[in-house]
Design a protein around this nucleic acid. Structure first.
Length: 894
DNA sequence: GCAAGGTC
């Protein structure tokens, strides 16, 4: 028994196989240099199994538009709400995919070890998709683990279960929506605004994204709050009691008042009888808590706030440290150390350091005592050092040192102090003062990023009275809020669920790159003209494009999908419709965007029309669904006026159907095929005279969807077999068949019913389709080939839909130079009474790779035999019974 | 030339 295990990343594969094998796994190379293969033996369900463990690197497949929809001018941006999308493997990950495809061939079971979060479940299904294409019946199991420790992975092996499709579906919905909405608005904005403001925005990419826009929105909102702020004067009473050098300030319990005369009266009252009476003295222990184990968001915030390294750069450095094996995985939401982490050993490694070594040693003596948070992503432990090093420089050193100090601090003890609170009364006005005495710094000794200042206070006793040194009326005014720092922005994103811990820094970086925002004094975020113009432009239309609400609503729907309450198809469609409507109105009111941007860019807008047709032609209609990837296939013309059908999934999907030279013209007929369904459009052909079998008139409307194998054979329809496309049709939530939207579907359906009724009452071209006669290969009865000799009967041997079917061909051996290219299906000559039109023998051939004979030789007309001439004349013989006086359409022998 | 989400 062989079991293929696939983890989300190499690091996880390495550790999981290490734990499962007891450290006895063998490593070998995969096709991707970054994703190794680990092998070991394992007792699985009481049997000795050979375990193979490899990994992906995050998502293996990505949603992409297909064909011309990828091109910016290939379609109108609003078409992107319906355009076919597929999940495909990007170039960079082909080697990973190939490794998995290779390994699964010899495997009996597939175990998914991706991270146990939503994205992980989806990545799991991507792996499953790839594996099932190679091995459709492979048994699939999901390992669920909350951390990568020996105990946890063994428990996961003991509790294997099915993967959760609901969770994966939710991610697919999110991913498809992000693509459709992002691309539609980005193209619309960019293409329009470059024409409206050619001097300023000609070379700008003006992107929209469901995370980047709310992030921009936070910056604009705070900036406007600062701009719009109107200071308000206030007044308060301040009491100071100074003895020698120590000055104690008592704060008014009313804090401050905005009513000056009232405040003056209270102040006067205090001055009338200024004796302070101590009403209460309370001294109690106070601690300052050590930090929680470090997660990504905290690292980014501290990087920005304390180390003065922006979040993106902090993460880049952290990744580098991780890749050198110096720290644990830096993208984690976990702030709880799992049991069995071996924390003392990790601390031990730092005892030799000149700066924090002593602290580490003392920590070991006292015993580690990790503070426990409440968050776990069930995949990664908190960020911690995994190896000691003292040779780092610059920012790498700063980040590493912070991670080490944070690690030691969170395992240490809270700082301890004594806080004294003194409450006094001056003629019925209450005041309060605090003092702080620090007893033990504890974690603060190793954690210079936080301060805790002692505050001296005199000794007071309850009931004591004293005369304050001063009782002053102080005035001030309220001040505007601060502009946002990067740390503030990350906090807001986290609070509103914008992005993930792994992507906050990227969204912030993106709005900087797009010039939507800039930095003031290198710290504070301010919107640029473009950023504020866009936000206010959409605001003026009444859309909350830059507010977090839309994303939060989607998040609720996604949770509903995960919980099995909501249908992913419905959620996807509802969201698409919602944004399609917003898009439609945005296009309608695009001048508001122009006006707002004009104000901020200080440039007059050029007048452009309000539509989305920005240099793109009409979209081609689908002929048929691609048998390989499920996208639509469309009719295209070559330079030499010949036609072919190609998949919209090109280039990843290279399926195509080439028509032979006998087809002079081909175009779409108005109807779809009643037998093959609404996915298949009828085609109107014009054939070169005499090149087709007799019952096909020169102008013929037919179906290549599979219900008419004769037609397919005569048109030499075959699959262009290239490399297997690296595509997967988007499952469940989208397919090409319904891409025209519900209204169009109904119309098509109605039209189709009409056509079906017509076909019931009107004779149409019959198709000799019955089962192949059970004949031995041999002489061709009275059938002659183009050489004028008796043709030989053969049977299709290849494993195709035509397998077992008989055909006639030249009797000379293959390779003989004199051999002619004659080809004729035997059932063309059989009595059609054996056929059953309602049960086509090739229900959906899917353009198989049958190597039909080459028809480029002499035409049927040139190799005329009595019963194979054009049939569009009543003087010729019937294609069905070969009698004269009628055609196949009205053959009495059918 | 587009999103957001994973990760060497």
């Amino acid at each position: 028994m062989k079991i293929l295990n696939v983890a989300e990343k190499n690091d996880a594969a390495k550790h999981i196989s290490g734990f499962l094998s007891g450290g006895n796994s063998q490593r070998r190379e995969g096709l991707s240099p970054y994703n190794k293969i680990y092998e070991f033996n394992y007792n699985f369900r009481g049997r000795n199994a050979k375990m193979t463990m490899t990994s992906v690197s995050g998502h293996l497949l990505n949603h992409e538009f297909v064909g011309q929809y990828r091109k910016w001018l290939g379609c109108s941006p609003d078409a992107l709400f319906d355009a076919p999308v597929m999940k495909e493997c990007s170039e960079d990950y082909l080697k990973i995919k190939s490794t998995i495809e290779r390994e699964v061939r010899s495997s009996d079971v597939l175990i998914i070890w991706t991270d146990c979060d939503r994205e992980g479940e989806n990545i799991g299904f991507e792996i499953i998709t790839v594996c099932q294409r190679i091995k459709p019946n492979i048994e699939i199991l999901r390992a669920k683990f909350s951390e990568i420790t020996s105990q946890s992975v063994r428990r996961a092996m003991a509790t294997l279960g099915p993967p959760n499709k609901l969770i994966s579906d939710a991610v697919d919905v999110r991913s498809e929506l992000d693509l459709r909405i992002g691309a539609a608005f980005t193209r619309f904005q960019t293409l329009r605004l470059k024409r409206v403001f050619p001097e300023v925005l000609a070379n700008h990419l003006i992107s929209y994204g469901s995370c980047q826009f709310p992030t921009l929105g936070f910056v604009v909102e705070r900036y406007k709050a600062v701009q719009d702020f109107i200071p308000e004067p206030f007044w308060k009473i301040k009491v100071v009691h100074k003895i020698k050098d120590v000055s104690v300030e008592f704060v008014w319990k009313r804090v401050k008042l905005f009513d000056q005369p009232f405040c003056e009266i209270l102040h006067e009252k205090c001055l009338e009888n200024p004796k302070a009476v101590v009403e209460n003295v309370l001294t109690k222990p106070k601690s300052k808590w050590r930090p929680l184990p470090l997660d990504t968001v905290e690292l980014e915030k501290v990087g920005s706030r304390k180390l003065k390294i922006n979040a993106k750069e902090t993460m880049r450095i952290a990744e580098r440290l991780y890749n050198q094996g110096l720290i644990s995985y830096p993208r984690t939401e976990t702030n709880i150390f799992p049991s069995g982490m071996g924390l003392p050993q990790l601390v031990e490694a730092h005892t030799a350091d000149n700066n924090w070594g002593q602290f580490a040693a003392k920590l070991l003596e006292d015993g580690v005592n990790p503070r426990q948070g409440k968050k776990s992503d069930q995949a990664h432990p908190p960020i911690h050092p995994t190896k000691y090093i003292d040779k780092l420089q610059g920012n790498e050193r700063k980040v590493y040192e912070y991670i080490v100090r944070h690690f030691l601090a969170c395992l240490s003890k809270d700082a301890e102090g004594l806080e004294t609170t003194v409450e006094i009364d001056i003629n019925n006005e209450k005041f309060i003062a605090h003092g702080l005495q620090i007893l033990a710094l504890n974690y603060l000794e190793v954690y210079p990023y936080e301060k805790w200042n002692a505050k001296e206070i005199h000794e007071y006793k309850r009931g004591q009275t004293f005369n304050p040194t001063s009782i002053d009326l102080v005035n001030g005014e309220t001040s505007a809020p601060r502009l946002l720092t990067e740390a503030d922005l990350i906090s807001l994103m986290e609070k509103h669920g914008i992005g993930t811990d792994a992507t906050h820094a990227e969204h912030i970086d993106k709005i900087k790159t797009r010039e939507y925002v800039g930095l003031l004094e290198n710290i504070y975020f301010v919107p640029g003209e473009l950023g504020i113009g866009l936000v206010e432009g959409y605001d003026s239309m009444g859309f909350e494009m830059s507010k977090p609400r839309l994303r939060a609503e989607l998040e609720r729907d996604l949770q509903g999908i995960c919980d099995g309450i909501k249908d992913p198809k419905v959620v996807l469609q509802e969201q698409i419709e919602k944004y399609r409507e917003v898009f439609r109105k945005a296009v309608e009111q695009a001048n508001k965007l122009d006006e707002m941007l004009s104000k901020y860019l200080n440039t007059q807008p050029a007048i452009v029309e309000n539509n989305t047709n920005i240099a793109m032609g009409a979209l081609p209609e689908h002929v048929i669904k691609c048998s390989s990837c499920g996208c639509g296939m469309v009719l295209r013309a070559r330079h030499n006026n010949t036609s072919f059908i190609s998949c919209l999934g090109y280039p990843p999907c290279r399926q195509s159907i080439w028509f032979p030279e006998k087809v002079i013209e081909v175009c779409l007929a108005p109807d779809t095929c009643v037998e093959c369904g609404t996915d298949v459009r009828l085609l109107k052909f014009k054939f070169r005279g005499g090149t087709m079998a007799p019952f096909y008139p020169d102008v013929y409307t037919g179906c290549i969807g599979g219900c008419d194998p004769q037609l397919n054979a005569m048109l030499e329809i075959r699959q262009n077999v290239g490399s297997a496309p690296n595509v997967t049709v988007t499952p469940a939530v989208n397919n090409v068949a319904n891409y025209n939207g519900s209204n169009t579907r109904n119309v098509t359906q109605n039209r189709n019913d009409e056509f079906r009724n017509q076909r019931r009452t009107q004779p149409t071209v019959p198709r000799p389709t019955g089962p192949p006669p059970n004949l031995p290969d041999g002489d061709g009865d009275d059938v002659q080939c183009n050489c004028g000799q008796a043709a030989r009967r053969f049977t299709v041997q290849k494993d195709t839909p035509n397998k077992g079917r008989h055909f006639f061909s030249c009797s000379k051996p293959q390779g003989d130079a004199a051999r002619c290219t004659f080809f004729l299906w035997a059932d063309f000559t059989d009595n059609a009474s054996t056929s059953n039109r309602n049960e086509p023998r090739n229900p959906r051939p899917g353009f198989t790779n049958t190597n039909y004979n080459n028809h480029s030789g002499p035409s049927f007309k040139a190799r005329k035999r009595g019963n194979f001439t054009k049939t569009n004349s009543v003087s010729r013989k019937c294609g069905n019974c070969r009698q004269e006086g009628h055609t196949r359409n009205n053959c009495p022998n059918r």
